[in-house]
Write a protein that binds this DNA or RNA. Sequence first.
DNA 1: AGCCGTATCAGCCAAATGGATGAGAGACCC
DNA 2: GGGTCTCTCATCCATTTGGCTGATACGGCT
Lengths: 208, 208
Amino acid sequence: MSAITVLLVDDHLVVRSGLRALLGTQPDIAVVADAASGEEALVLVREHSPGVVVMDLAMGEGMDGIEAIRRIRGLNSGQAILVFTTYDSDADIVRAVDAGAMGYLLKDAAPEEIFAAVRGAVQGRSVMSPPVASRLFQQLRNPEEILTPREAELLSLLTQGLSNRELGQRLFISEATVKTHLAHIYSKLGVETRAAAIATAIRREGMR
Amino acid sequence: MSAITVLLVDDHLVVRSGLRALLGTQPDIAVVADAASGEEALVLVREHSPGVVVMDLAMGEGMDGIEAIRRIRGLNSGQAILVFTTYDSDADIVRAVDAGAMGYLLKDAAPEEIFAAVRGAVQGRSVMSPPVASRLFQQLRNPEEILTPREAELLSLLTQGLSNRELGQRLFISEATVKTHLAHIYSKLGVETRAAAIATAIRREGMR
DNA sequence: AGCCGTATCAGCCAAATGGATGAGAGACCC
DNA sequence: GGGTCTCTCATCCATTTGGCTGATACGGCT
């Protein structure tokens, strides 16, 4: 039986090197290439046609991880994509799965978890780190906490420090409407002030 | 000549493993141990008395990197400490250097940079990644923008969404004093509202 | 047709925040 | 001793924000 071929994508050399060392201990897994950027990853996927792509979401310059996932999926060459990242931000998880990721691992995952994820991915099984899974679960359990599109739009501007007046101007709505939306956002986020809303939004969503 | 002994501290197994693999290629550098937490690091420093400690600042549970640096320095057993982290946050750099770090590297540093930093550290030379150095430089050029310790403390609590009243209670000062500090912070950050202050603080400082 | 969710707006009032100004105490430096 | 920071507190006032209530309009679902 031939080994599972893997492409690593991470902008940190150290992480690539660490994953290589870890995965290298498994006889049935072979790292065939690694890329430091999304652009490079696309080239290497075409070249090597690996079975699994293990990828960080946050990559300094250029294409971000989500976009890279989408493009790789667009190649239709059948790669299973595993997200391997530091933060378990709600938005990131949803977006990555949405873009076509098979699994979502955190960087502090145990080696066994990583191996299992790689093996599971080629078989079409989806693997998540427990904390990631619980986040997703929570989100599904609390539908009343889901922001409407308009609210999300407003929240995103809010995290840039705009005042109610500015929010209104930016969205072409009255200040009264802004306040209504804000009230709904606060209640959904479980906070009482705009400051707390901004804090939780940025921490929850990884908005930066 | 005997090799430089190194202790690695990082809560991510992958990173430890990557650093081990990289540093292992250098004949004059020997990784003698690695720790996943600050607590563990302290024990291992006593045990191995390494020449250099390479440490991540952000470590999930327990003691943070800054605290660990301070404690290791407190042992007075002569370790040179290299910070090796993902983010080049202004506050982190200053606090780490303040706590006694010899150098500050980013995780996307080239292998040669890392080797040079380790070698430089045992000789008492301080090494910084170029982007880090430029940050520090900027900060020295704009002294009027440096927050005082108290202001930084307040800002950090601010990013957690506390109100003026809560800030006062938490810091054992009157609300009036809180407002004074806030006014100074706003002017230093170049913003006018608390919302904008929180937004810039989190984005600038990588506060999470 | 009736109901629900979403988005829009208004008015009122209480509370929080921001701006300006002044001021005292302690630390540090020259 | 004098100057400069830093931290502390106070007062006054304008603006902003938050809470409440109620209202209109549109679209989709049943």
